[in-house]
């Protein structure tokens, strides 16, 4: 069984650096694996351990640096790694990103049974790519997933939305987008990293996936940023400098009356 594992390297949103002009200073920001994707990796590895003949292909679109997340996936258990990297891909929106991923999956992993993704990327936070990718691949999808059980040609997926839990049964091929509820993260050991180093990351560009330059990147993307700004703090925040507990106690009593 071929599992496709879609990963994204994102800037750390907890560590945002700003320029004097209030723009994001990406050069100073650290990159990391998108948090939801960690759970997608764990799930893929879990399936590989439970079933026979599972091959995991980790795939990511991004610059050369994004090899880091592919190496990490390899250390955790991915058997193959593909980086989609081309200057022409830069500034692709969700529609075009999905199109690029779908083209590459159809071409390089044509016999896939299951596509696993994170629910959303922490930087853009659109949650649109998994759904759009499923549409391009013409397969059913379950999003907001928290667990997968796999048996023969069917898989069962637990979907959590608010206080409702749905138990789905889907035929393969299908896509499952996993939410970041990864509570038991396992860490690769040194030997795993050494083994991962011997894995050759396949790198493909525009010509390899058979799309035209006018279909991708900033040219091919229908949506574009018209303006960007930092939200203003509309609150008049007063700083309390002493007697904190007493101040709080007074505020509590005020409301209680």
């Amino acid at each position: 069984m071929d599992i496709v594992l879609c990963l994204k390297q994102v800037p750390d949103v907890d560590d945002i650096k700003w320029t004097k002009e209030n723009n994001l200073d990406r050069s100073l920001m650290l990159s990391k694996l998108n948090p939801c994707d960690e759970f997608a990796i764990e799930t893929a590895v879990k399936l590989k351990q439970a079933l026979k003949d599972v091959s995991i292909t980790a795939i990511s679109m991004g610059p050369e640096n994004a090899k880091e997340v592919l190496n990490y996936a390899a250390a955790k258990g991915a058997d193959r790694a593909i980086l989609l990297s081309d200057k022409a891909f830069a500034a692709s929106d969700t529609l075009v990103t999905s199109k690029i991923l779908a083209s590459a999956i159809k071409k390089f992993i044509p016999n896939f049974s299951l596509v696993l993704t994170g629910q959303m990327a922490q930087d853009g936070d659109t949650a649109q790519v998994p759904v759009s990718l499923a549409q391009y691949l013409d397969i059913p999808d379950v999003t907001c997933a928290s667990d997968i059980v796999c048996e023969s040609a069917n898989i069962s997926v637990v979907q959590k939305t608010g206080s409702i839990m749905n138990f789905w049964e889907i035929n393969m091929s299908c896509l499952v987008a996993l939410n970041d509820e990864c509570k038991e993260k396992t860490f690769p050991k040194i030997n795993d990293y050494i083994r991962a180093q011997s894995l050759n990351i396949e790198v493909y560009g525009l010509d390899d996936i058979g799309l035209d330059k006018n279909e991708v990147g900033i040219i091919g993307s229908p949506t574009r940023v018209y303006r960007a700004f930092r939200p203003e703090n509309k609150k008049n925040t007063a700083e309390i400098s002493s007697d904190f507990a007493k101040f709080m106690f007074e505020q509590i009593n005020k409301v209680k009356k």
């Binding site: 907890d14 922490q122 936070d125 949506t223 574009r224 940023v225 018209y226 303006r227 700004f229």
Partner: peptide, 20 residues
């Protein structure tokens, strides 16, 4: 149509237009 949405953990607001 110009649509504004929070991004980067709502630390940046982006107004987006679509050409299609």
């Amino acid at each position: 149509l110009a649509s504004t949405r929070p991004t980067f953990g709502a630390q940046l607001m982006a107004t987006i237009i679509s050409k299609s």
